[in-house]
Simulated assay, not measured.
Amino acid sequence: MEKVIIGIDISATTLDICRREETKKDFFTISNSISEIKKILKSLKKYSQVTIAMENTGRYNWYIYEALKDFSYTVFVINPLHLKRSQGLVRGKNDKIDSERIADFASKNQESLKSWKPDSESIEKVRFLFSERNSKVKLRASLLKQQSNYKLMQSTLAEELLKMNKEEISLLEKHIAILEKDIENVIASHQDLKKKSELLKSVPGIGKVLCWMMLIKTGNFQEITEPRKLACYSGVVPFDHQSGTSIRYKPKLSFYADKSLKSILHMAAMSAIRLENDLREYYLRKVAEGKNKMLVLNNVRNKIIHRAFAVINKQKPYEKNYINNLVTS
């Protein structure tokens, strides 16, 4: 039978699908539900080779991921920025066109793309709960900003609005606490995750939020297995900027990074240099040598990542004065 490539443009309620068979293409739309998705996936069994491509849209991918567990198709989950940069100059945009572009991108780049594999059930639960927690944290931050506006208004209406605002924040904080407790319960119920969580938290600067993010972003250290790859992913590794012999700039950080992880790493680095540990000693020593503070702080972020992988690989908690036997022997 023929080979087929499926490009899927995902939204909250619908999936726009482009089905590409060699030069032939057809389009259709279904609801974003597990039952509808499974019907489409079952209809693809008649093909000898099935490739499915979609963008990573966060929680909107959830139903597709669930449905795909029962099938063995080749699946690519594409970074939206990667797709956008590959298109060059384009005109026009709608869901149908986007699904076609995803299918075309998968067709041209199949050999270089990394196949998607489902996470373990425990990691999926942690990822989903963490996503819900983050949405409520962002909403709380928005409500906190509103408070300053209400305080400037000297009226009864402002007092009523401020009261409502505080009640909403209080409720959000309760929900955030429940979600964080649920995340810890999931981790505690899985021996491997529990062990890795304890190891990560032994590293100076790594608290519960960064610990959860590292477990999620690395797929429980199964998808990303090297510290440099995570450092690159989180935007703490500088890259050279050079062209010929006349254009040469200082190495600088890439803008193409996971901003949320980079932000949490920055907070972890700030926390680490306030505590009594070797990272603080390193920071103070380099600043005293005249190094730029932000450059040194970025190096601390990088060191935190490398220490995290070290404790996971060695299966031992972090030790400040650890001596490598290979060096001393």
Rank of each mutant, 00 (worst) to 15 (best):
R59I: 15
Q315F: 06
S35L: 10
I216A: 00
S131W: 05
E223A: 14
M214S: 02
R19Q: 15
D26P: 00
F130W: 12
A308Y: 08
D278V: 12
E319T: 08
K252E: 07
P118C: 09
M267H: 09
D119V: 01
E168T: 02
I30D: 05
K314T: 12
C18R: 07
S263G: 06
V186M: 04
D240A: 15
T13S: 14
L179F: 07
D26G: 03
L284R: 10
S234Y: 01
V50W: 06
Y47E: 01
L83A: 07
S155W: 02
L129D: 08
E168N: 14
M1N: 11
S234R: 05
K229T: 11
S33I: 08
E276R: 13
N292Q: 14
N292R: 12
G244I: 03
A53C: 11
T51P: 03
S329K: 09
F239T: 13
A288H: 05
V287C: 05
R307S: 10
Q222S: 15
N32S: 05
L326K: 11
A106T: 04
A269H: 02
S112V: 13
N277Y: 07
S131K: 08
K125I: 06
E319L: 14
K208C: 02
N324A: 02
A288E: 13
S260P: 02
Q154P: 00
